[in-house]
């Protein structure tokens, strides 16, 4: 993959970016669910600012509201109070303009479509012409290392390959934000390790902002510049830790003493809260 074609996967800067507007912002976001007579505070007064270009991870025990926060940004869950925005756009506007792309835990392939038709789905819905969307889908498939599997059916791919295809599907939209909800959660650790560095390379090549929900401490440290720690009941942010491991990371980064230091910090933060 040459960097020239990778650059073409990055969305052209718009006016709001040029003015230096903030990236992913949440201001006093609260979400309450009703389950029967029970009222659950999924999120309570969450404020957050992820500058553009940042790789951010959201970590916490299950049920702490981290997926809910991601879904607020994706315009899937409406906040009970407070606001969320992407580069100054509301989540609804961001969804309508396909500013963000969502990668779910299961790769969510439509099993009756070939891999390339799955990857081109977003463009197809946006009404892009068939030759163009196939070309762009092929580009992103090459970027995630799935060249040659265009005509395969999802069932013929391994779990790791399907997850790559899901990432490729997100990339074809040339999003400014990748919203990833435990994208590697269902994979074995060996595949997961390999995909971590693939994702880092793709982010470097496209310049997209990452917003990753995870419950793996090692994953949060290796993938992000900023780790947001959340605690459950009610879901709120307890700590934001900057991870200073440099822009370019390799498997060797894990042997860096600072890596272990950050892991320990996160573990303490999570356990302290519990």
């Amino acid at each position: 993959m040459t960097s020239a074609s990778a650059a073409s996967l990055t969305r052209a800067d718009t006016a709001s970016e040029a003015t230096g507007a903030a990236g992913l912002v949440a201001q006093g976001v609260s979400v309450t669910f009703r389950r029967g007579t029970q009222v659950i505070d999924a999120l309570k007064d969450v404020s957050l600012n992820i500058p553009r270009g940042t790789r951010a991870a959201l970590i916490g025990a299950s049920g702490c509201g981290k997926s809910t926060l991601l879904r607020v940004f994706a315009d899937i869950v409406q906040p009970t109070s407070g606001t969320a925005s992407h580069y100054g756009l509301t989540p609804a506007e961001a969804r309508a303009n396909r500013v963000y792309a969502l990668v779910q835990q299961g790769s969510t392939m439509l099993p009756w479509r070939t891999v390339i038709d799955n990857v081109a789905l977003g463009l197809e819905i946006a009404g892009t012409s068939k030759p163009e969307r196939l070309e762009r889908a092929a580009e992103s498939l090459a970027l995630v290392g799935l060249k040659g599997f265009e005509k395969s059916l999802p069932a013929e791919l391994s779990g790791g390959m399907r997850q790559r295809a899901a990432i490729a599907r997100a990339l074809t939209l040339r999003p400014r934000f990748l919203l990833m909800d435990e994208p590697f959660g269902a994979l074995d650790e060996i595949t997961r390790d390999r995909l971590h560095f693939e994702l880092l390379r793709i982010l470097e090549e496209t310049g997209a902002t990452l917003f990753l929900v995870t419950h793996s401490i090692a994953e949060a440290v290796i993938l992000s510049d900023k780790v947001v720690v959340m605690t459950p009941r009610p879901g709120r942010i307890s700590q934001v830790i900057d991870v200073d491991l440099g822009q370019h990371r390799t498997p060797a980064t894990r042997e860096d003493p600072r890596f272990g230091h950050y892991e320990l910090m996160l573990r303490r933060a999570l356990h302290h809260d519990a």
Binding site: I76, L102, Q104, T108, G122, I125
Partner: peptide, 9 residues
Amino acid sequence: DRMELLYSL
């Protein structure tokens, strides 16, 4: 999940 994906698109 499929419905959510299409909605996000």
